[in-house]
């Protein structure tokens, strides 16, 4: 069964068609890759699914429930989590408190007695053991991303949307992060939609890829298929190098 069904979704900002008529679905147990040149509309598509912005046209269904236009907190409570392209932990709060907020935000907040255990377990899992009382602002980039991941997991999601989880990481850190993502899927049964510019990583980790260009879905298939697709090659080669 498809967990997420995105059905002919469009969104424009002023004259700019950021996402136009995109449809796709996320299957149980998969890590779905979403790629495309800078400004292709990937983040906007995530914002549409997670409820941060409302589509002009089209519907989004999650787990059989129509979530189009629902506020983000309701979508999170329904079991759809997300991370941000630029990590957004609560900088003025400790790692412990960051995860705590996610436990509180659940539709049925975790009982008080279970919280310390749950939080410690999640922080251990993402590799932040012993940093419970560190302020998020004192963490380095990868730890901030780890914290964001722990926080997203604390909402107990069925599906997590990851926006450039590897951006800015060294290659060793990248390997760690990829291992982490795979183990989350295997151990916790979380499905992923994953935006990434690091092609090597996405090719090894994803069974299926979506390619977005200028707001349109131009290709869908296995990494090998996508790599051979003429439109994809043109989109990447033809795209001006924005250089960020």
């Amino acid at each position: 069964m498809s967990l997420v069904v995105v059905d002919h979704v469009s969104k424009s900002f002023g004259g700019l068609q950021a996402v136009s008529d995109v449809s796709f679905h996320v299957n149980e147990g998969e890590i779905l890759g979403l790629i495309g040149p800078n400004g292709a509309g990937k983040t906007t598509l995530f914002n549409l699914v997670a409820g941060a912005i409302t589509p002009d046209r089209g519907r989004v269904r999650f787990n059989g429930l129509d979530i189009t236009g629902l506020p983000p907190y309701r979508i999170s409570r329904a079991g759809l989590a997300r991370t941000f392209q630029v990590a957004r932990p609560f900088l003025g709060m400790t790692c412990y408190e960051n995860v705590l907020v996610a436990l509180i935000g659940r539709a049925h907040p975790a009982p008080d007695s279970e919280r310390p255990e749950l939080i410690r377990e999640l922080l251990d899992f993402v590799g932040l053991s012993g940093k419970e009382s560190f302020l998020a602002s004192s963490l380095n980039l990868i730890d901030k991303k780890r914290l964001e991941l722990a926080r997203a997991l604390a909402t107990r999601p069925r599906v997590a949307l990851l926006d450039e989880a590897l951006g800015g990481l060294s290659s060793i850190e990248m390997d760690q992060a990829m291992g982490l993502i795979r183990s989350i899927r295997d151990k916790r049964g979380v499905n992923f939609v994953w935006i990434e510019h690091v092609m090597g990583a996405i090719m090894t980790l994803c069974e299926r890829l979506l390619v977005l260009n200028q707001g349109m879905l131009i290709c869908e298939g296995t990494p090998a298929d996508v790599a051979r697709d003429a439109r994809v090659i043109e989109a990447y080669l033809g795209a001006p190098d924005a250089g960020d």
Binding site: P72, Y73, S76, A81, M93, E97, V101
Partner: peptide, 25 residues
């Protein structure tokens, strides 16, 4: 209380708080 933690989350980052199920409004 939980409300207090929500307050601080909202102050730190409304968008992130909402993405974790906090009813910001």
């Amino acid at each position: 209380s939980d409300l207090g933690a929500s307050f601080r989350a909202v102050q730190n980052d409304e968008t992130a708080a909402a993405s974790l199920g906090i009813p910001v409004v």
